[in-house]
Nucleic acid binder design. Structure first.
Lengths: 356, 356
DNA sequence: TTGTACGCGTTATCAT
DNA sequence: ATGATAACGCGTACAA
């Protein structure tokens, strides 16, 4: 076959694959109804008799029809796209959130666009405004710390753009949100350490501009008070959820005259850092010092010893958010009650009874 | 204000925000040209005088116009969406790939949809076919091991759907692909260990159905041969890139009569597992045994000692893929030459000169 | 170089 | 319960 013919042939094939345009007219013809009726069936409108409904449905199945999103969007002024905004969370955490959102998007026939953000960027609100405009996003899911980005939220409120927040600090807005019971879980973890006989329990705090950072500290304090143990400020070190901040905090905690016998790091990265420092100082874990984390990140299983930590319902948080958001978009539902999901303790090797 | 009025008012606001419809007609009016001319400017067509072009451009800027994707898609039969398929890679790796693709999508005004897959699923090809149909994606980026999923690729070829592959094994297809120089990098890592005086160097293999798995083994062997060291089958253990497989492989290697003095694990998870086993066996790293990984995963910095590993140009692989794909889609460009990107050794604490 | 008329596939409006 | 017609905003074909 000569080159020219070959090219022409390939173009025909391209055209053929593109031309596979089954529209609602084809379905209507096959089912002997009007296009509008097909549309009614697709959109599950009420006023369709059961008979015609099944008729149309079988025609759709027979032709393998699926609606053209562009046409639908053009008409309805909806994109069927929601945006997921995140900043600086651990990769595994972000992936879990993505999976949770996707699971709902698939059911609802929405698409998700993801958007890594920089919370400290001056232009964040503008950047997102541009995203919304360009991609014509129907709604947004905000994860911490963006859940509390004032300028962005003000913009969304002004423009009446739907959004749902994951674990926000400011809960006075009318937009709905979901969160985990970090406070209780942190208290449970502290209870766990106390039950092992520890009375000197250090904590490495996370970033307090995250709700999780605040709540985990609150849970720690609650537990100590309940057990009538003092809250010793020497045992409280500020971190920011990063490994590096964990290193310096752990160093301060463990090089005191009377170091704590157990350390609760507010996430697994800081716990990993604590373990490293302990090893460097020649301390055995958990014989000399117990270490606990939070998040159940992959690294918690890769450390030696494996890390006692808290599992969070991350995928569930995300899927619930997506569910709320899509309901808002489609049904103009107003604010719904905040949704609280439960964490679970994961006891591994890094915590043990205190050495007598 | 009574409730009904309040509701009506809110609806008006909603309408107002929705009605913010600046179209090419508005731009055309402002610039005193025809809509078609505006379209020409937007699409950078040639036949527009510089004068009218700048005129239109300033009108666009003044009105803050951006084209309606749905209308454009409906007309051009393009979605301006590309899909990114991945399965079971490490979260940090996937996030890097996403960021790389996004960076190009932003420039080209494309959207990305992500799709976690299960390579072993019977219905993978069908699922992706459904995705393509529903979301009307213009093209796909396949990451390992999906890069070599025969059924899926056959489908894409048949339907003439554009795709680009990252690190595929089968390179005989005409579709373009990008890859990293894993083989050379693995050889360099082995060279590094040899230069430290090691002659008994174990390797924990990755999944050989990934190109990376094959290439890293090849590099290891090449390096040994170059140094005229024997390839000892006792020192080669099969793994599958998972932490667990690393544990059992490391155990086998390190409990031999004459264990290797250095172990090259084909990724960081397996290296982390090796470190754990070494610790458990009472071996010091790197004094008793050197350990090296591959990927420069976050965990490599969180271990103690920190892990010597290989950094891969993951974001670059992704952005190059996206670039190739978008060019294919927009310009009907045919296959381009394979693109090879370079890895880099990252020497940290887990490798050291052999103990005399 | 620039403009006019039409159609992409769907849903909304209004009618029956 | 169902159908006819118009319109969403853009790009193509064709004309000027």
């Amino acid at each position: 076959m000569c080159a020219v013919l070959k090219y022409a042939y390939s173009q025909i094939l391209v055209e053929c694959s593109r031309l596979k345009k089954i529209t609602i007219y084809d379905v209507a013809k096959k089912a002997s109804v009007s296009p509008k009726t097909v549309s009614r069936v697709i959109n599950a409108e009420q006023s369709v008799s059961t008979k015609t409904k099944t008729l149309v449905e079988s025609a759709i199945a027979a032709l393998g029809y699926s609606p053209n999103t562009s046409a639908r969007s053009l008409r309805t002024k909806r994109s069927y796209i929601l945006a997921f905004l995140y900043d600086n969370l651990s990769p595994a955490y972000v992936m879990d959130l993505q999976v949770g959102i996707l699971s709902i998007c698939d059911k609802a026939e929405f698409n998700m666009v993801i958007r890594p953000c920089n919370f400290t960027s001056e232009t964040l609100a503008q950047d997102i405004a541009a995203l919304i405009k360009r991609s014509r996003v129907d709604g947004l899911i905000l994860s911490p710390p963006i859940s509390d980005h004032k300028e962005l939220i003000q913009y969304l409120e002004e423009k009446q753009i739907d959004y749902v927040r994951i674990a926000p600090i400011n809960t006075k807005l009318k937009s709905s949100y979901v969160f985990a019971n970090d406070r209780e879980a942190a208290a449970e973890m502290t209870d766990h350490l106390i039950s092992l006989g520890h009375t000197s329990i250090g904590i490495i705090l996370g970033d307090l501009s995250h709700l999780a950072g605040q709540e985990r500290l609150a849970g720690y304090k609650n537990s100590l008070k309940k057990a009538e143990l003092p809250v010793n400020s020497n045992y409280i070190e500020q971190g920011d959820f990063s490994f590096e901040s964990g290193e310096s905090a752990a160093l301060k905690l463990l090089t005191q005259k009377q170091p704590p016998t157990a350390i609760f790091a507010c996430n697994d990265y800081m716990a990993a850092a604590t373990m490293k420092i302990a090893h460097k100082l020649g301390l055995r874990v958990p014989e000399d010092v117990s270490i606990a984390g939070f998040d159940d990140a992959p690294v918690s299983k890769y450390l030696w010893p494996t890390l006692t930590t808290v599992w969070q319902p991350v995928q569930q948080l995300a899927s619930q958010s997506a569910d709320l958001l899509i309901n808002k978009i489609l049904n103009q539902e107003t604010s719904t009650a905040p949704l609280e999901l439960r964490c679970e303790l994961v006891i591994r090797e890094s915590t043990a009874a205190i050495k007598k």
